[in-house]
Design a protein around this nucleic acid. Structure first.
Length: 541
DNA sequence: GTTCCTTCAG
């Protein structure tokens, strides 16, 4: 029997621990053991530690970098691994600092280094950087490596340079499924669905990624019905779908407001044993909330074990409740999120909360969240300001709302000014409304709503001539009023309507119900809002 | 002795 030295014994023991390691906490313990037994500078042990920490998500990048720094003469393996960690981190540009350091140290990049570097470049969407990287790839002789070529296609499409992506693709001697899929994804991602479809149709073999990339392309381009049609063909083709496919499909249902279809997709997921990932649960919550069934959204949310929740699913349910006017419940779920400590609130969480406050008229809570947002040194975005202006404006605090607009650190967007304009109109601030209305028209001269907005301000102040003039100015400038569009799903069928639409088979029934509802609203509006609101309703039908 | 490319959620 071979006798091991104490050092070899420790190395074997550490290696065995590392192969069974499941969490970062365990990894830290193994690292401590390595330090105690004097193996913290053993490159093999460090390589194992580094591999684990670089594949444990972007939160561990700092730790990975510390590990990397403890290697005395890092080989290309160590450089590639740390470059990979940075390419997936918040700061992909750091990957290039390491690349430069690697070149200065006289280490040549290999066929592993370049895919990570191109990925970093893709995330930065920097074409100049990508072009110079491509030159390096040629220089070091890796331009015919399949993996490098595939990642180059991805890089070019991320930089929206389809021509170069195509050149790489056409120059390839050997293409695999990934090459084709990357092309489908890249043409789809740039919004050219015709080209994506052509590549897809020309594929010798297709897999679940090919289909999913095409479906997602249609979703990203807003062609939701087409996305669902492709999904149907995919099923007809006998292709097995996965969680990624369903995320895109549910997103399409959510945008269409197609509750019955969404429910059927939920059943499909259960029946076909599609893995219910956290992302998929988030999509289900989002779909149910956007399709009007907050009850089912809550049910899906409650089925996810609290330990697995992350900020995105909290945002989906907090935002969903806000959307449904359940402001107090929305705020209560935020408290629950804080209490369980699962998921760190981000900028979007606060946006959802502010939107809850807007719907519920919760001015004090809105200020509380707004200050909390600033206190946590998060990026206060123009959307947060828009919500604050909206919540203050709706509560009649028009001066305070105006103060926000005046002092905000960036240019107020159309949504910020729009919220202020509505406040001026509702609470009769003619002077400010006129000023804001004119700014909005300047900002968006081809947007019909901007003229209508100012016209409504005049109308609310009973300045009928000015109101009429604004509409005339709009017409003179050739700005057409966009017809309002709505859709409703009945028994899985989607019915679409535009303003004054009389095309529907049951148009007589629909209009008689509408006039009944309008009469009810007329009565209510007389009591609540006075004349001009009533007028607005009639005008817009 | 260990690494690489494609599809997804607010």
């Amino acid at each position: 029997m071979k006798t091991l030295t104490p050092s070899q014994f420790h190395t074997n023991r550490l290696t065995s621990f590392l192969s069974q390691c499941k969490t970062m906490k365990e990894l830290n313990q193994i690292h401590a053991q390595a330090t105690i037994s004097g193996h913290s500078s053993d490159n093999y042990i460090i390589s194992k530690l580094l591999l684990f920490s670089t594949t444990s998500g972007p939160q561990t990048t700092d730790y990975s970098f510390k590990l990397f720094s403890s290697v005395s003469n890092p080989s290309s393996f160590f450089y590639s691994t740390i470059i990979r960690a940075f390419s997936a981190s918040k700061n992909p540009a750091h990957a290039f600092s390491l690349y430069n350091q690697m070149l200065l140290a006289g280490i040549s990049p290999d066929h592993f280094s370049f895919p990570f570097l191109t990925k970093a470049c893709a995330r930065l969407a920097s074409l100049p950087l990508g072009t110079s990287l491509h030159c390096d790839i040629v220089k070091y002789g890796f331009s015919s490596d399949l993996f490098v070529q595939n990642s180059l296609i991805h890089m070019y499409t991320s930089c929206r340079d389809i021509v170069s992506a195509r050149e790489v693709f056409d120059a390839m001697c050997v293409r695999n499924l990934v090459s084709w899929n990357t092309m489908v994804d890249g043409y789809a991602k740039c919004g050219d669905l015709v080209a994506a479809r052509n590549v897809f149709d020309g594929m010798p073999v297709r897999d679940v990624v090919s289909w999913s990339a095409l479906i997602d392309g249609y979703v990203k381009s807003g062609e939701f019905s087409e996305a669902l049609a492709v999904f149907a063909s995919m099923c007809d083709d006998g292709m097995k779908v996965n969680a990624v496919t369903m995320v895109s499909v549910l997103c399409a249902c959510a945008h269409l407001g197609a509750l019955d279809q969404g429910r059927r997709m939920h059943c499909y997921i259960k029946d076909n044993g599609v893995c219910l990932t956290l992302q998929l649960s988030t999509s289900l919550v989002d779909m149910y909330a956007k399709c009007g069934s907050i009850t089912e959204a809550l049910a899906v949310f409650r089925e996810v074990p609290v330990v697995e929740t992350d900020v995105l699913i909290w945002n989906a349910i907090i935002g969903g409740l806000a959307m449904h006017g359940r402001s107090k419940d929305s705020l209560a779920l935020f408290e629950e999120m804080q209490a369980t400590g699962r998921g760190q609130p981000d900028e979007i969480t606060y946006l959802c909360l502010l939107s809850a406050c807007t719907h519920g008229g919760l001015v004090e809570d809105a200020w509380r969240f707004f200050n909390l947002l600033k206190a946590q040194r998060m990026a206060v975005q123009v959307e947060h300001y828009a919500c604050m202006v909206d919540v203050l404006g709706r509560s009649g605090l028009v001066e305070e709302a105006y103060e926000i607009v005046r002092t905000m650190p960036m240019q107020p967007s159309a949504s910020v000014l729009g919220a202020l304009l509505t406040a001026c109109q509702t609470h009769g601030h003619l002077h400010l409304g006129e000023l804001v209305g004119r700014m909005l028209i300047e900002l968006d001269p081809y947007h019909d709503g901007r003229y209508i907005g100012l016209s409504s301000v005049y109308a609310s102040a009973k300045q009928w001539d000015d109101a009429k003039t604004m509409r005339e100015v709009m017409e003179k400038r050739g700005v057409r009023k966009t017809p309002g569009c709505s859709a409703v799903e009945v028994d899985g069928n989607l019915h679409r309507f535009i303003a004054h639409d009389k095309m529907h088979q049951q148009t007589t029934d629909i209009y008689s119900m509408l006039s009944f509802l309008l009469n009810q609203m007329k009565l209510e509006s007389d009591i609540i809002n006075g004349e001009h609101f009533k007028q607005e309703i009639w005008e817009n039908v």
